[in-house]
Amino acid sequence: MTQSNSGPAKPGPSLWARAQSSAIEQLHIRLESLIVLLVLGAIMSVLSPYFLSVSNFMNIFLATATIGVLAIAATFILGSGGLDLSLGSVMGFAGVVGAWVAVTAGLPTGIAVIATIGAGALAGFVNGIIITRAFVPAFIVTLGMLGIARGLALVINNGAAIYGLPPAMVYLGQGRPMGIPMPVIIFIGTAIVMHILLAYTRYGRHTLAIGDSENAARTAGINVSRLRLSLYTLSGALAGLAGLIFATRVNAGDPTAGLTYELTAITAAIIGGTNLFGGRASILGTMIGALIMGVLQNGLNLLAVQSYYQQMAIGAVLILAVFIDQWQVRKESRV
């Protein structure tokens, strides 16, 4: 996907089709989602003069960071033909664990950071074990974990948030090296690493292969259940990272953090071109999807739309995105 060796340019496919196929091949993204992002941005800048300001852009990225990291997790899981509905709850759970370790137990920031991500990874590992060893469908296991992790988050401090994180930890959420918010740096850094992992390593290719055809992967000698287990653990760890970003940004381990975030994260991944049924996924696409969700939320905030309606809008966008995807699949009559 780096060089084109197709010889002299042939007439034939339309400019649009060629632009699209090269965009998909080079960057693994959907052109449509990029256009939606630009159009959405244009509409917002007309509706609100504040939208186009630099500080608002930072706001959008900042607001997208948590969702973006969860969406990256959703991209891997959906790409592998799986599903993780526990992302938002695990994120909330991990944030409370981190705050508990740092504040209540008074341990150093380094340990609190590891504990936060580790708590997420552990929840994901439990998901993975039950899915791969007990053969309970991912839908059920992660729906159950959605309830369990949220319950645990509430149990740890009797439903109250844990405030007063140490400054070193707060820096992760509120620091601005060179004027760029730390959450944005963490988000972009995670996206780059995960993009390379997905697109350029055996791990990423095998992830898409098991989502495409578990049977094909198995006959090729891939250890499918071990790979799935590691993917759910990775997903949990990323949810933990999202929990870390959120907790350090608001300077609290809030047990209600991340409520319904899985909805937004999965929506972002699907808008970005990830196949709901596995086999196709791209981190760059997901980044665009996450930004679309961020712009949408930010714009609705600027327009002072109540959050209840925002929730409805996100739900509607999810259904619409899957509809468009399925409609295109049927139109091309593949699969």
Binding site: R205, L208, A216
Partner: peptide, 9 residues
């Protein structure tokens, strides 16, 4: 017999 290919790859 069923080829065991990954169709989207």
């Amino acid at each position: 017999q069923d080829l065991a290919l990954a169709r989207q790859q």
